[in-house]
Design a protein around this nucleic acid. Sequence first.
DNA 1: AAATAGAATTAGAATTATTCTAAAATATCT
DNA 2: AGATATTTTAGAATAATTCTAATTCTATTT
Lengths: 142, 142
Amino acid sequence: MLPLASQRSPKPEDLPSELSGLRLTKQRREVLAVILQERDHPTANDVYLRSQNRMPSISLATVYNCLEALVSHGIVRQVNFEREPSRYCPNLADHCHFQDQNTGKIHDVFFKEGVKLEDFLDLPQGTEISHLEISLKGNIGH
Amino acid sequence: MLPLASQRSPKPEDLPSELSGLRLTKQRREVLAVILQERDHPTANDVYLRSQNRMPSISLATVYNCLEALVSHGIVRQVNFEREPSRYCPNLADHCHFQDQNTGKIHDVFFKEGVKLEDFLDLPQGTEISHLEISLKGNIGH
DNA sequence: AAATAGAATTAGAATTATTCTAAAATATCT
DNA sequence: AGATATTTTAGAATAATTCTAATTCTATTT
Ligand SMILES: [Mn+2]
Ligand SMILES: [Mn+2]
Ligand SMILES: [Zn+2]
Ligand SMILES: [Zn+2]
């Protein structure tokens, strides 16, 4: 995420034409810019609606295609809460997600410094974790 | 889960007529017995197919209704992996789930003795977690 | 036991997030 | 330019789940 860390909300045209081996087409740049702009973990449909501001001709199928391309190249993360529509997160740091049940808003939650999985989970001997998802729900203070 | 802990795979007729404030109808008992029988985290459709052995007339809608009733009364847990169909788990102990990517099988994973959430997560001050789901994917040593 | 009322079951339709298909547009290569 | 590969697009298809409305079952009251 080095090229993206330099700016918080790059405009589409500020994004490079290639990233992590993925060619950034006009639509992919727009989708990525939308996700970087408001880091509120939008759904595919949210991304679609927001993309339409600058690119009214983009299709929902393209948004799905772009999201799939960005996720599979490790440029954005797909975030799931139970059976709700997937959401998308540009924060590549190791973190998990908390949904405030009052507002519905999703917040990034980080691991305590230096914590390893095996420190708190009794994993079967020899397991190699390739994917981890932690989703929390609850309320903030009384 | 006291009444259920006494027997590993009770037949439907061995189950009580009420549990955690939920009346256990014939169908609910069948669904629960199926989930207790093979603890392999079946999907709703798996439960439907297995229920048909002893109860050929049960409908899929009823299976969904029963699962919803059992989950909302805290008798079984709903388990989600990304966007796959929900699975159901009768293990009420605090645990999470690991999916072996070679076999597709799901294994229960327990927390290390005495570990608290705040020990490894940097939660915002004053958050009360009401729901937690941890899903792991990976491979078991070569 | 019959009547009543409430709850649960059922078949089938509806919903909805996501994926697929096939054609048109765009980009890359020779 | 012409050929090839990739991407976008609209619309159809898919599939897990939920909903609707009718029927059946259960528990309670007369
Ligand atoms: Mn993921
Ligand atoms: Mn849950
Ligand atoms: Zn995030
Ligand atoms: Zn489990």
